[in-house]
Amino acid sequence: MNSKSAISNLNSSVWRSFRTAAWLGWQIESNWTDPFLFAVYSIIKPLASAMILVVMYGVITHGDFASPLFPYIYLGNAFYIYVGAVMTGISWAVVDDREHYKTLKYIYTAPTHFPTYLCGRGVARFLTGTFSVVITIVCGILFLHVPIDFAAMDVPLFVVALLIGVLMLAMMGLLLAGVTLLTVHHYGAVGEAVAGALYLFSGAIFPLDVLPAFLRPLGFLMPITYWLELLRRTLVGSVAQAFPTLAGLSNAQLFAILLGLTALFTALAAIVFRWCELRARERGLLDRVSNY
């Protein structure tokens, strides 16, 4: 087989894996036997957590909703929904297929591109996540006066940054999927746990300077930090000047850092995933069921 046809084979298997996995993920995700549950999960849950945040903010600041801190927190929290959704969507597919459906071995030994397959499984969670994000922001604008100035929005930058961020989150999800391959007992959703932990280190609800100095570097290393900042600035320009942490950086600089860190995480995810996959194959973990 020459290298050209090898590459086109890989291309078609990558696309096949992604498309089919996305289809499967959607079938699973949209399988709400009860539309009420779907509403609770994608509308009420994110709105409830946004409300808690708003109430806490109101109490602490004595109702200073005009401060740029308010949209900072509100939007940071809203977009952070993607972190849990995408990372969990991808890493949870390993547990789901291996433990619940017992199909992981058949998918792994099929001519699929395995990491692409897992990324495809995250698409559905991205879509339902988008639904939650949109609902949260729309409610913020309608009822809480989150000050989005539609004329000042940088729509192209917003869209590009959003998409790069989703790619970045997918790579982090893949990294976690690799780790999940090596854990025999399923500790719930690793993705959700990591997303919860990173909530505090990525400037989602407060600027990084609030953190103790020794924890700040973690925040500066996380591409999520720059991603959230960029999304906020493209929607509400005024937040840029309000906080010292990243105020020194222009949008272009933020974008460059986001790109760089995303590339770094992509490389890291590729290496870690490959390593974990080989270890899992060596140890016989690809079809291991934990029995509880």
Binding site: R16, S17, W23, Y101, A110
Partner: peptide, 18 residues
């Protein structure tokens, strides 16, 4: 093994896709 929420045809069709 298999995805209980898919029909027999869908389960099989999906693997054929891979």
């Amino acid at each position: 093994s298999g995805y209980g929420l898919l029909t027999v045809r869908e389960n099989l069709w999906m693997f054929a896709q891979f």
